[in-house]
């Protein structure tokens, strides 16, 4: 019966909330071993247009949570609603960016960007200009015909950003998209994403294990911990947009980072006991 209770409650809120995660748990039954609770009764909601970072140590279940929001993993209990309707599987209104760029090695940058259009059977010609504009926007002017092996790791990840944006999804889910990049390139990509966000404001969920990255990019940071795999803090980041990368040097920024670090370490320690 709790299901119908939730359904009765939600419609009023659905107009403002884009993503709603209600009492979601995920339990893996690994063979004869005991069941592992990867995500444990998580609750949060994301209003339209907000950029939310899910911050946590590796293996705390944050990627699993993101994949459940994207409809790529089933929830064990609880429910997830996106744009007011419950998730039952992947949707084209949700774009996902993965840890690696997952470009097709035999296709040019442009064709890789247009790949979703092809899969969705939309008229590819109509999206050509859009794809080119996106590539220009992320600084890949003149690289449209290059194959992935001719591009650097950062460039490949830029192509995959374009690919996630080209078909205009309402929600963008990013699963540690820059964790495979070196620190300098990563900073560069953060700057680019900040910039892009000014133009293409979308609802976004961004999973990361970098505290600075989370504070730099997000309007709100959710801290997730292991044992139990749940959200222990929901912090609004006070910096206005447009943001400059230079906010990273401010005292306030570093204080927020310090607080979050303490929160993660504390709950990590608590969990061990």
């Amino acid at each position: 019966m709790p299901d119908s209770f939730v359904q009765n409650r939600v419609p009023a809120a659905a107009t403002t909330q884009c993503v709603e995660v209600i009492e979601v748990s995920k339990i893996y039954h690994g063979g004869t071993q005991n069941a592992v609770e990867a995500v444990s009764s998580v609750n949060f909601s994301v209003p339209h247009g907000q950029f939310v970072a899910i911050l946590g140590p590796s293996g705390c279940g944050k990627s699993t949570l993101l994949m459940m929001v994207g409809g790529l993993e089933a929830v064990t209990t609880g429910r997830i609603e996106v744009d007011g309707s419950p998730m039952a599987g992947p949707r084209t209104s949700i774009g996902i960016m993965f840890q690696d760029s997952t470009l097709l090695p035999w296709k040019s940058a442009l064709d890789n960007v247009l790949f979703p259009i092809k899969v969705l059977k939309r008229p590819v010609q109509e999206y050509h200009d859009n794809a080119h504009a996106l590539l220009d926007r992320v600084g890949l002017y003149g690289f449209a015909q290059k194959k992935p092996h001719e591009l650097s790791g950062g460039m490949r990840q830029r192509v995959s950003i374009c690919r996630a944006l080209v078909y205009e999804p309402n929600v963008l889910l990013m699963d540690e998209p820059f964790s495979a990049l070196d620190a300098i390139t990563r900073d560069e990509m953060n700057g680019l994403l900040l910039d892009l966000w000014q133009q293409y404001t979308k609802t976004a969920l961004f999973v990361t294990h970098s505290i600075r990255e989370a504070v730099m990019l997000a309007d709100r940071v959710l801290v997730m911990t292991q044992r139990p795999a749940t959200i222990v803090e929901d912090l609004t980041i006070p910096f206005a947009r447009p943001r400059e990368m230079s906010i990273g040097e401010s005292r306030e920024f570093n204080e927020i980072c310090g607080h979050l670090r303490e929160r993660i370490e504390h709950s990590h320690f608590e969990g061990r006991r």
């Binding site: 994207g70 790529l72 599987g89 992947p90 084209t92 949700i94 774009g95 996902i96 993965f98 899969v119």
Partner: peptide, 9 residues
């Protein structure tokens, strides 16, 4: 890449 395909339905 296959997961990407799945996410694109």
């Amino acid at each position: 890449t296959l997961r990407l395909c799945r996410s694109l339905t």
